[in-house]
Computed example of a mutant assay.
Amino acid sequence: MTSTHPAPVEPAHRQRRTARTVVALMLREMATSYGRSPGGYLWAVAEPVAALALLSLVFSLAFAAPPLGTNFPLFYATGYLPFMLFNDVANRVATSIRFSKPLFAYPGVGYLDAILARFTLAVLTHLAVGALVLGGILTIFITHATPEPGPIVAALGLAAALALGIGTLNCYLMTAFPVWERAWQIATRPLFLISGIFFVYDGLPRAAQEILWFNPLMHIVGLMRQGFYGYYDGAYISPLYVGTVSIATLVTGFMLLYRHHRRLMED
């Protein structure tokens, strides 16, 4: 007698199938997000360059020097780039199910594939943009900066991890409760102003420090600046805190998606 049960899928084969699915979804994302607009990926570079140029011009007219160093573009780039990495990656991960819902009819495509594809492509894009922008600033201007790879890689890694955790949790919340997307956008608008892009934590009043310490992006931006300003102490920075928030939100989001993903993909 022969068994009627299907043969189990070997782990290696399953991993190869998942990798092919993620790559296919990334190619689809590239075509839909960048291939339909004039200039394509050029806009991904032009946006931060224009924002940093505007910030540098405005604040150079009001202040003689930035809070750290002597170069305005470098100071704002070290805050703006990790913030934008977190913000954009988290938003893309949060809309993964909605973006790829038509493809879930295929047996080889799942919600984890959609999340991994959007996360991977968004992170790679921001890393490439960051390298171009920071490399251009260090080449064009005399910054007296001594970049250290350790803190820079750690800051960008924490920004990506936090984006994955927050994005995964929001992926469930925004899909299950559509009103949450608008509420989240309103609630997080002040983040641009309170995440250390325009100032350093150490220069704030004690009362403000005690509140803003709980903003994970303050730690990420501080760590990023440690990588460019070797003399910056940043004693308040806690990678453990950022990692804890990232893991807690990621695990909670995945548990909710695992339990409710069938209903979310059918709605």
Results as ranks from 00 to 15, higher is better:
T4Q: 05
H5G: 03
P6M: 01
A7F: 09
P11E: 10
P11W: 10
A12W: 05
R16H: 15
A19K: 07
R20G: 11
A24M: 11
T32Y: 00
S37W: 02
P38V: 03
G39V: 02
L42P: 02
V45I: 14
E47L: 01
A51L: 11
L54P: 04
S56G: 07
V58K: 05
S60F: 06
A62M: 10
A65I: 01
P67K: 11
L68G: 02
T70Y: 02
N71F: 04
G79F: 12
Y80Q: 08
P82N: 05
L85A: 04
L85T: 05
F86P: 13
D88T: 11
A90R: 15
A90D: 07
V93F: 07
T95P: 00
S96I: 04
F99R: 04
F99D: 04
P102Q: 04
A105S: 09
G108Y: 03
L112Y: 09
D113M: 02
I115G: 06
A117E: 06
F119G: 01
A122Q: 03
L124G: 07
A128D: 00
A128Y: 02
V129Q: 03
A131H: 05
L132T: 12
L132G: 01
G135T: 01
L138P: 05
T143G: 10
T143H: 08
P147C: 12
P149N: 00
G150M: 02
P151T: 13
A154L: 03
A155F: 12
L156Q: 13
A160D: 05
L162S: 06
I166L: 12
A183R: 13
W184E: 13
Q185P: 00
I186T: 13
I186E: 00
T188N: 11
P190Y: 03
L193W: 09
I194A: 13
Y201D: 04
G203I: 09
R206C: 02
E210G: 04
L212E: 12
Q226G: 14
Y229H: 09
G230C: 06
Y232I: 02
G234K: 07
A235L: 06
P239V: 10
V245E: 00
I247L: 15
I247M: 14
A248F: 09
T249D: 09
T252C: 15
H261N: 06
R262S: 06
R262F: 00
L264Y: 03
M265I: 09
E266W: 01
